[in-house]
């Protein structure tokens, strides 16, 4: 049977699930291929932060409510805390680190800078990727569409006014 079965590292462990289990995954993150062994119960966002050092993706609620861990998996926004790293094997992940080019902010980030789109900044990476997904193939999005997209990202500082304004501004300024 061609089943991807993980080796039990500790052979003395009792029962099939008692041992530490690792599997080697190959995942493309922001264009770079990484091949790493990873415990099967490590979430994608923990893998990105702790194994790859990409600490831009934040860990908030860890049960899919806050959206701080939003990353793009094969170009679709997903919760990084509700996906195991092993599930990203063979897939492409995009994080907030992919937006800026060197010291030059992405137009979306520039708009957040100019229009007060953040205060503490904890929710910002997830919101940037949500907005990136919303604007990537669209022009002239309405405020209602922006707020609908943002409904999956919690911000406890701004009251969202600045965020909505920033996304509206980026809709104008981002040449795409």
């Amino acid at each position: 049977m061609d089943v991807q079965q993980e080796s039990v590292v500790d052979p003395a462990a009792a029962g099939p699930a008692a041992g530490v289990q690792e599997v080697t995954i190959r995942v493309t993150v922001n264009g770079a291929v990484h091949e790493r062994p990873v415990p099967v119960r490590t979430s994608l966002v923990d893998f990105l932060r702790e194994d790859l050092g990409l600490t831009g993706s934040h860990v908030g609620c860890e049960h899919g409510v806050c959206g701080a861990c939003t990353v793009l998996l094969d170009a679709e926004p997903v919760r990084g805390c509700l996906l195991f790293a092993v599930q990203a094997d063979g897939h492409e992940v995009t994080t907030v680190e992919a937006l800026a080019t060197g010291d030059e902010l992405h137009p979306l980030q520039q708009a957040f800078w100019e229009h007060h789109g953040l205060q503490c900044g904890f929710c910002t990476p997830g919101i940037l990727l949500t907005a990136y997904d919303l604007l990537r193939e669209r022009h002239g999005v309405s405020e209602a569409e922006i707020r609908e997209a943002l409904s999956g990202n919690l911000c406890r500082c701004t009251g969202y006014q600045g965020i909505v304004r920033s996304i509206q501004a980026a809709d104008e300024s981002w040449e795409r």
Binding site: V3, P16, Q21
Partner: peptide, 21 residues
């Protein structure tokens, strides 16, 4: 890491999946 340990299986076909179940 939040979940309790588990064994992870990723079958490729419906037949394999129902065998594992």
């Amino acid at each position: 890491m939040k979940p309790a340990p588990f064994q992870y299986l990723a079958p490729r076909s419906i037949e394999e999946t129902v065998e594992l179940l």
